[in-house]
């Protein structure tokens, strides 16, 4: 198990390879569909210091307010490929060092990971209760008017478990599995 403290730097991220099991520690920020469109089209200044060197989590959590303080009820990853049109620009513009999500992403994001030094961390889809246990504090929320699933949630995590499935050297577990399953498919439908 490799430990990554956030915010992190290019050197630590470049050392990661696909298949590495990682624990993330520090501050992460959730962002999904509305948030990605907003980051790329509106380019808000207040997000830049928050995102530099950290990771974005593709997640629309269930949250609740207890004594005026937000807490994560359950919060697993959402499907990442929907952010494919935006993610390369987000990596470039905001200097994020990684994306947490599920299902992997495409070529454009993979190239951005290579060019700017970022990786894709795969979290287990649907393991929402277990993943929420590693989210120890909600520090802030931005753009709550997008609705609770779509807002930016700033969260402190401890030992958030994930696995590197796209690295900063052009490696993608998703491309590999796609190619292998395609070969089997072609044989079956022949």
């Amino acid at each position: 198990m490799i430990n990554i403290n956030l915010p992190t730097d290019e050197k630590a991220i470049r050392s990661l390879k696909i298949g590495d099991e990682v624990h993330l520690n520090g501050v992460i920020v959730t962002a999904r569909d509305a948030a990605h469109k907003y980051m790329v089209t509106e380019m808000p200044d207040d997000l830049k210091p928050l995102l530099k060197g950290t990771v974005i989590y593709h997640c629309g959590p269930i949250v609740r307010k207890v004594d005026e303080k937000w807490e994560m009820v359950v919060a697993g990853p959402t499907t990442s490929i929907r952010e494919e049109p935006y993610e390369a620009d987000v990596i470039k513009m905001y200097g994020v060092r990684g994306i947490i999500g599920k299902g992997g992403m495409g070529r454009k994001t993979l190239h951005a990971c290579e060019d700017y030094g970022a990786v894709y961390f795969h979290a287990t889809g649907g393991a929402a209760a277990k993943l929420a246990e590693s989210m120890i504090e909600v520090l802030d929320v931005k753009k709550l008017e997008f609705g609770t699933p779509e807002a930016f949630w700033v969260i402190r995590v401890r030992d958030f478990p994930c696995i590197v499935t796209m690295d900063s050297h052009g490696g993608s577990l998703h491309e590999k599995i796609d190619a292998e399953s395609k070969k089997v498919l072609e044989k079956l439908v022949k």
Partner: peptide, 11 residues
């Protein structure tokens, strides 16, 4: 955990 703590299986 979901079962024991009455938490949604998925968010």
């Amino acid at each position: 955990i979901s079962n024991l703590c009455s938490l949604p299986v998925c968010q």
